[in-house]
């Protein structure tokens, strides 16, 4: 079973200027795989190469080297785009078309048969809450409405893989939540979603896996849980730990933790190895401490991202 997205040693060099003398290396040997059914986030500072990577996957930019496949089909063939949907960041629809006409036009371009289009368009217009405005020209639509229409456009062919480029850009919090819920619903229906967003809080809420690009290279990839975990530091919630145990172990009161119940306390534990961790747990048990939970400490994705993309002065994650 091929991965939804499979990229190996992908490189892209833009040639600019007279006689293409000056070159810009946008991607340098990028390799990553996005399994089916996952919401995957692509992060990186401005100019990291995120947009170039997405555009290569969509056939908008030609690669200079390496391979890129969607469901096992090379991206340079139109057939690779048969099962995908794409919502560009600042998409523009022909203003003279109504919402329904727009979806018919792009449905036809996406090779959706007419009968299927008729059913799907009404269903999608309802789903993105534009059914009442179906016969309104799109040049009168607000940014949020255009974004929802764009999403409907991307879903016309029931895509197995959906590319979303800054889907919540310019959308108010309510619209953002609607879009987020829709993305989660699509994931539950089995679609793979490739999300490019600078709103790290949004990424953190919906994505399972992420990759961080910097200077055209993948510098980190993995699940958010793995990446944001602080090594060998744990948050522990238990009944109160006696002071003598607290003094003798690597256990400290949690600086920011609040216990979930009045009879419980929050602690932070730093164990350099497994033996130390187990030793502490043994001592707690010996002191008759009841452990409620022990979880690895996590940073926010934003903190992690800022640590990874140096210098920290450029915290914008757009590419």
């Amino acid at each position: 079973m091929p991965a939804a997205i499979s990229v190996s040693d992908l490189s892209k060099t833009y040639r600019t200027g007279l006689l293409s003398r000056s070159t810009v290396k946008a991607l340098r040997g990028v390799s990553l795989e996005v399994p089916k059914g996952e919401i995957f986030g692509l992060l990186g500072p401005n100019g990291a190469g995120k947009t170039t990577l997405v555009k290569i996957l969509l056939g908008l930019v030609h690669r200079s080297g390496g391979t890129a496949r969607l469901f096992g089909t090379p991206v340079q063939t139109p057939a690779a785009r048969q099962r995908i949907g794409f919502l560009p960041e600042n998409h523009q629809f022909p203003g003279f078309l109504t919402a329904r006409q727009t979806l018919h036009v792009y449905g036809r371009l996406a090779d959706v048969p007419q009968i299927r289009r008729e059913e799907k368009i009404d269903e999608l217009l309802r789903r993105v809450e534009l059914y009442e405005r179906r016969d309104t020209k799109v040049n009168t639509f607000s940014k949020g409405m255009l974004q929802r229409l764009g999403l409907a456009q991307a879903l016309l062919n029931d895509p197995d893989l959906l590319f979303l480029d800054e889907p919540t850009s310019g959308v108010d919090p309510v619209g953002r939540r609607t879009l987020r819920d829709l993305v989660l619903e699509l994931r539950d229906e089995g679609a793979t979603i490739f999300l490019n967003s600078h709103l790290l809080s949004e990424v953190e809420k919906v994505c399972s896996g992420i990759a961080i690009l910097r200077d055209g290279e993948v510098v980190r990839k993995g699940t958010i849980k793995e990446l944001t975990a602080v090594e060998r530091v744990y948050d522990l919630v238990s009944t109160p730990v006696p002071d003598d145990v607290l003094d003798d172990t690597v256990l400290r009161s949690s600086p920011d933790g609040t216990a979930p119940a009045p009879d419980l306390r929050a602690y932070r534990l730093q164990a350099d190895d497994r033996a130390t961790l187990n030793g502490v747990l043994d001592r707690l048990r010996a002191a008759d401490v009841q452990i409620e939970s022990i979880t690895p400490l996590r940073r926010s994705l934003e903190d992690y991202f800022i640590d990874v993309v140096d210098p920290p002065s450029d915290v914008d994650a757009t590419g």
Partner: peptide, 12 residues
């Protein structure tokens, strides 16, 4: 920008 992406991301 914004139009060409919609077009060329289709299977054409």
């Amino acid at each position: 920008p914004g139009r060409v992406e919609l077009l060329l991301s289709k299977p054409i």
